[in-house]
């Protein structure tokens, strides 16, 4: 039996709140919750100030919603607009996984792998919970034939604040340093999607001033990302697909021809980049997204690569190699 003494653990209070709100059709008022639900009722003062308890309830609602539990508020019958008498409930249909959704053992194996990809940042917690829910469905996953340990990095400091802004449709501000520009410029944008392309994270965003969408490379964001306090109307359509399609288009339109030394590291690895064509023996045509970033990559190959075209890339690689030679001479 529930002991009405001692401190009720947090998870017990949260669990009791979910059960109580799932069981009610018409909803419970805040007062009903605080005075009757396990974990609150022990601290409820029938005549007195419950401000602390109310704040606790507000935080608990956020924690529960964070898990994907659709906690909603409805007006009390006949008292539309009366905030004091709002009723809280969790509608069963929006809470429960639709009955026609099930996952095969094979699919479960794939989803476990997909979850494993996120091993750092807040997405690792999300993945862990998703796997927990998946396991609750009782499916036993196939042991993969070959072990995998995939990992996506989220090392850019801007990632978490942007992801959070993305969910809140919050307009953000940050300083962005474009290569070739001496100083960073402050941008104010509405984040639409975060996408990884060619191993790098990009923000696809709308500039409210110009109504133009732009793509920013996260590693070029040189300040903290701050919220402006303003929000924007959630965009319709698949912003992620749009962002990736645009990045792909850029990547597709930029090509370079490079000469690679036979049986060198450059010859082996550049040949295996996606989309590489052999122009003639020892000459490869490569796609790239950004001349500055690609120049860094090519400079790493030292004398194994000679850039034939375009001239801007050739000059960029040459400058980089000279700089490195000078700073180490």
């Amino acid at each position: 039996m529930a002991a009405p003494i001692a401190k009720v653990p947090v998870e017990e209070r949260l669990f009791s709140l979910v059960l109580a709100l799932l069981a009610t059709e018409t909803g419970l008022t805040k007062n009903e919750i605080l005075s009757t639900v396990q974990g609150y009722r022990q601290r409820y003062k029938a005549s007195g100030d419950n401000a602390n308890l109310e704040r606790q309830f507000e935080r608990d609602k956020d924690d529960i919603r964070d898990l994907g539990v659709p906690l909603e508020t409805i007006d009390s019958p006949g008292q539309v607009g009366n905030n004091q008498n709002l009723r809280y409930r969790i509608p069963r249909g929006a809470y429960e996984l639709p009955g026609d959704i099930s996952f095969s053992a094979e699919e479960t194996t794939l989803l476990n792998l997909a979850a494993m990809v996120w091993r750092e940042g807040s997405l690792s917690a999300e993945s862990r919970r998703a796997v927990m829910k998946l396991r609750g469905l009782g499916i036993v996953s196939d042991e993969p034939v070959l072990g995998y340990a995939p990992r996506l990095r989220v090392r850019d400091a801007a990632f978490e604040p942007l992801r959070s802004a993305l969910e809140k449709n919050a307009i953000v501000r940050f300083a962005y340093l474009k290569p070739g520009e001496g100083e960073a410029r402050v941008r104010e944008v509405a984040p639409l999607a975060l996408v990884q392309h060619q191993g790098r994270w990009h923000l696809h965003a709308l500039e409210p001033g110009t109504r133009l969408t732009k793509t920013f490379l996260l590693r070029r964001i040189v300040s903290q990302v701050t919220s402006t306090g303003a929000t924007f109307a959630a965009p319709v359509g698949d912003q992620t697909a749009q962002a990736l399609a645009e990045l792909e288009e850029v990547w597709d339109s930029h090509t370079a021809e490079v000469e690679v030394t036979a049986s060198s590291d450059a010859a082996a690895r550049l040949a295996k980049r996606r989309g590489t064509e052999v122009v003639r023996d020892g000459v490869l045509r490569l796609h790239y997204s950004d001349a500055n970033i690609f120049a860094d990559e090519l400079a790493g190959y030292g004398p194994e690569v000679l850039v034939l075209s375009p001239p801007v890339l050739r000059a960029a690689v040459r400058t980089r190699l000279s700089t490195t030679a000078e700073t180490h001479g």
């Binding site: 929006a94 997909a114 979850a115 990809v117 999300e126 993945s127 996506l152």
Partner: peptide, 14 residues
């Protein structure tokens, strides 16, 4: 329970 929007997004991107 259903997945949260973020949980589903993490799995889809994975």
């Amino acid at each position: 329970p259903r997945f949260s929007g973020r949980e589903a997004a993490a799995l889809i991107a994975g």
